[in-house]
Amino acid sequence: MPDLVIDGRRTDLGGGFAVNRILPFRTRRMVGPFIFLDHAGPLDLPPPARRKADVRPHPHIGLSTVSYLFSGRMTHRDSLGVTQEIAPGAVNWMTAGRGIAHSERFDGAADGDPPMEAVQSWVALPEAAEESAPAFDTYPADTLPVAEEAGTWLRVIAGAAFGLSSPVRTHSPLFYAHARLRTGAATGLPEGHEERAAFIAHGTAEVDGQPFTAGQLLVFAAHEAPTIRATTDATVMLLGGAPLGERFIWWNFVSSRRDRIEQAKADWTEGRIALPPHDRDEWVPLPPDHRKKPPAAEPLS
């Protein structure tokens, strides 16, 4: 049985773009190095509304963003000069390191495209990599390993799972996989990882006879060997890995040091984190901090 079940919370990003936010959660802030998990869409907007839903240039430090689409498309632009269309099934892995800014826009979407639906996660960096040079890597869907058996289709997005290894470059031990289960089909979780979870994106499933539904994250203890069985056709994201220790988070900034968060705030406000060269006419300003007392960033562990 799961140690913890987390229900997603609807969060409005503005412009008609709402997401189901899974992590961080008040009683479980991380699963392995995964520090953030959003399920967005399906988002079907007419052309005039797409501009309002664009995610304008904003900064990150101390993490990698992982954008993974089920359908639709978006365009990524970052301060390294990268412009990349985000396609379904591909992995777009942006490592912020000491600082990067990026945007995700719908300007490449065309009439007739299927609605955009995606899972975006943030993977915290180990301390030795927190101040690394920023980088962006993309891996087309056909470069990622896939297995099919008895009604279960599975793609390993990152790390190693079930005898498959992804080519995606990571900074700490982890696994991340996309599974599609026909009604009655089942999957387990990879062994050998201290922290593991399964997010039900679509459909319903059960574990030891207990039912679960779309929008729930099931967090399991290291010693558990759960079987996740679909009670309808289901899409499940499997994730976890080695914990990294305490992290602080504020807005889009993650660090093992509280003072580094404060530095990132100043860097963005004073223009020391460059804007994307192909998307520099607007940006998201630093939000106000309404908390009356420190900490200025919350510790996550």
Rank of each mutant, 00 (worst) to 15 (best):
M1I: 11
L4G: 00
D7F: 01
G8T: 04
T11D: 06
G16W: 05
I22W: 07
R29S: 13
P33G: 10
P47T: 02
D54H: 14
D54R: 09
R56F: 07
P57D: 03
H58D: 05
P59A: 04
L63C: 10
S64E: 15
V66G: 04
Y68M: 14
F70C: 06
F70T: 04
T75P: 00
T75W: 02
H76P: 13
H76D: 04
V82D: 15
I86G: 05
P88T: 04
G89W: 08
V91I: 14
A96M: 08
G97H: 13
G99V: 06
H102V: 11
D107W: 07
D111Y: 04
P115N: 01
Q120H: 07
S121Q: 01
W122H: 08
A124H: 03
A124S: 14
P126C: 06
S132A: 14
D137K: 05
L144I: 01
A147L: 09
E148M: 07
E149S: 14
A150R: 11
A150V: 04
G151W: 14
A158R: 07
G159C: 09
V168C: 10
R169S: 13
Y176I: 08
P190Q: 05
E191P: 00
E191A: 15
H193A: 02
E194P: 15
E206D: 11
Q210H: 06
Q210F: 03
T213L: 01
A214N: 04
F220H: 09
A221W: 11
E224N: 13
A225Y: 01
A234Q: 10
G241L: 08
G241V: 00
N252L: 05
F253D: 07
R260E: 14
K265T: 06
A266W: 02
A266T: 12
A274D: 15
P276D: 12
P277F: 14
R280C: 13
V284C: 01
L286E: 15
P288M: 05
D289F: 06
K293F: 14
A297Q: 07
A297V: 05
E298T: 15
S301W: 11
